[in-house]
Simulated assay, not measured.
Amino acid sequence: MDTKTQQILTEISTVTRDIEENYPELQKYLDETRSTLPEGGNTEAKLDQKELQDYLDGLKEMISKYKEEHQ
């Protein structure tokens, strides 16, 4: 796994933890938006960096919209 992909996965974990701790009402949307599972079997599985980045951006956007609506 390359460094950029690892950084994106780390940030996804951080944002997901933030949602779980600070916005528990948004947790129900995590499963609906998850597209981060690798394709293929365990030995040849690859993560699509663009899909990971899109997922991360979607998580951040969800938090941002929630904050706007609940200020």
Rank of each mutant, 00 (worst) to 15 (best):
T10E: 11
N22K: 10
H70A: 06
Q53W: 00
K60E: 05
E69K: 10
D31V: 15
I12V: 13
K28W: 03
E39D: 09
T33H: 08
Y23A: 05
E68A: 11
L47W: 02
Q71Y: 11
T5N: 08
L59F: 00
D2Y: 01
I12E: 10
K28E: 10
K28V: 12
D31Q: 13
S64D: 15
P38I: 01
T43V: 08
T3R: 14
N22I: 04
G41P: 04
E11R: 15
T14V: 09
Q71V: 06
A45W: 06
S35H: 10
K46V: 15
L9V: 06
T10C: 07
Y66Q: 12
K28N: 08
I8K: 06
Y55F: 03
G58P: 02
T5S: 06
R17S: 15
L59T: 14
L56N: 04
E61W: 01
Q6F: 01
L59C: 03
L52C: 04
Y66L: 00
V15P: 09
L52P: 01
E44V: 15
Y55E: 00
Y66E: 09
L37R: 06
G58Y: 01
K67H: 04
V15G: 11
T43S: 11
E32V: 07
D2V: 02
Y55A: 00
T10N: 09
I19F: 02
E44Q: 11
E20W: 06
E68W: 08
T5P: 04
L47H: 10
Q49T: 15
Y29K: 06
V15L: 00
T16N: 12
L9K: 09
E25Q: 04
